[in-house]
C-alpha cells in the first residue's frame, strides 16, 4: 500500500482539503489504517475503493453559533481527503471500517493467496 500523491483529477481551489494524519500498520493478516478525522460525523464520512485507489473523505460539521467571528483557526478547511493506492495482495472487497470519536479504523485483509506461508528449509 502506498500513498497516491498524483491525483488524477486536477485539484481546484474549492476542492482544497486537509490531509488527515494516519498510522498504517501491517501484520500477517493484513493492513490496519487509522486516520484522525476530528469533527466529521459518521454520515459525512465517505470511503470508496475504485480499482486500487482507496479514498478517505470527510466533511467537518461543527456546531457554530450564529454570528461567530473567527479569531484564530488552525483547522481552516472543512474537508479532509487522502488517497492511498492498495497493492494487489490486499482484498479490497473485504475492508472493515470502524469510526468513533473522529478516529477511523480500517482493516484491509490480505487476499487468501497472499497469506504468508512458512517455507520449510531442508538441511541436507
Amino acid at each position: 500500500m502506498s500513498e497516491n500523491t498524483a491525483v488524477s483529477k486536477p485539484d481546484t481551489r474549492d476542492d482544497a482539503a486537509l490531509l488527515p494524519p494516519v498510522d498504517v500498520i501491517e501484520d500477517a493478516s493484513g493492513i490496519t489504517l487509522y486516520a484522525d478525522l476530528a469533527g466529521v460525523p459518521k454520515d459525512k464520512l465517505h470511503l470508496h475503493v475504485e480499482g486500487d485507489a482507496l479514498t478517505i473523505e470527510g466533511d467537518v460539521d461543527l456546531e457554530i453559533p450564529a454570528g461567530m467571528e473567527s479569531n484564530h483557526a488552525e483547522v481552516s478547511l472543512a474537508r479532509y481527503r487522502r488517497v492511498f493506492t492498495l497493492s494487489k495482495e490486499l482484498d479490497s472487497s473485504k475492508v472493515g471500517a470502524e469510526f468513533k470519536n473522529g478516529v477511523l479504523k480500517l482493516s484491509i485483509p490480505k487476499a487468501e493467496h497472499a497469506q504468508p506461508r512458512k517455507v520449510q528449509v531442508k538441511v541436507l
Binding site: 457554530i64 450564529a66 454570528g67 473567527s70 479569531n71 484564530h72 483547522v75
Partner: peptide, 13 residues
C-alpha cells in the same frame, strides 16, 4: 490538539 478560537457578542468559543 489543533485549536480554533472564535467569538460572538455573548460567548467565546
Amino acid at each position: 490538539p489543533a485549536m480554533n478560537v472564535g467569538g460572538t457578542a455573548k460567548s467565546v468559543e
